[in-house]
Amino acid sequence: MTAAGRISDILWRNPRLLLVLLITPPALWLGIIYLGALFALLAQSFFSIDEFSGLIRYEWTLKTYGDLLRPANFDIIRRTVVMAALVTVASAIIAFPIAYFAARYARGRWKAVFYLGIMLPLWSSYLVKVYSWKLILAKEGILSWAFETLHLTWLLEGYLAIPLVGGNSLSVSPTGTFIVFVYVWLPFMILPIQAALERVPASMVEAAGDLGATPAQTFRTVLLPLALPGVIAGSIFTFSLTLGDYIIPQIIGTSARFIGLAVYQYQGTAGNIPLAAAFAIVPIVIMGLYLWWAKRQGAFDAL
């Protein structure tokens, strides 16, 4: 009997051994590299930086977490969470009709069109998508041009003059940051809603109509509750992705910082890895709380 045959026999008689052989390489890779790195991050967040020498002091302390609560840093956290919440709500509103149409009405060729129509933007280059918005929102760009052609420049300028949302031009305003976030994460919201809606039988919507519900009532009392697990699943993506992004606010928007940007700057030029690590723990904690809440709402039972 050949060696290959003997090995085969051993594996066939010991499925456990085969399992161990299969699982060990990926488990080691993810366990050591990924979990190891996560623990390194956690450990770093309990160190602190010596304010005089700028060197990291390798002693356990909660001082770095205390720094997070300083007004300047706390502002960053609040701004990021508000932005993430707004982006999530807006994506859900824009995503719903697309998902509903794709799930209920698109058939045959249109099904493929919708599938690829959502998948291609999802997978196309993130930086290119952000870049295209820099072109669109620029002062001399296509959007200003459209407003001018329609003789609505006063409207755009009036909007940009509003504090908190406006700015010099759309590409340096918080509104710009918001639009780009919504655009970039939208497909992540469409897909789970579509998956949830595809499981709603069309007869249910018809039954509601037969029983005298108006379309608005049908939506509120039948469709929305059944689609809610999908919306929550999508919101997990949009919320988490906005919390961690540091490129969009850097390229489009005011210089106001977000959590991701703070992490990036503290670990880079400032060399304050402990504070960067502590900042990075914030999205993990927020997402943990969010997932716990979603679970309590029964979002996962229905999936």
Binding site: A40, L41, A43, Q44, D245, G260, V263, Q267, I273, A280
Partner: peptide, 13 residues
């Protein structure tokens, strides 16, 4: 998890 977590984790490791 957000990409920045993976990034900063690897960086600190």
């Amino acid at each position: 998890l957000p990409g920045i977590i993976t990034g900063i984790s690897l960086r600190s490791a």
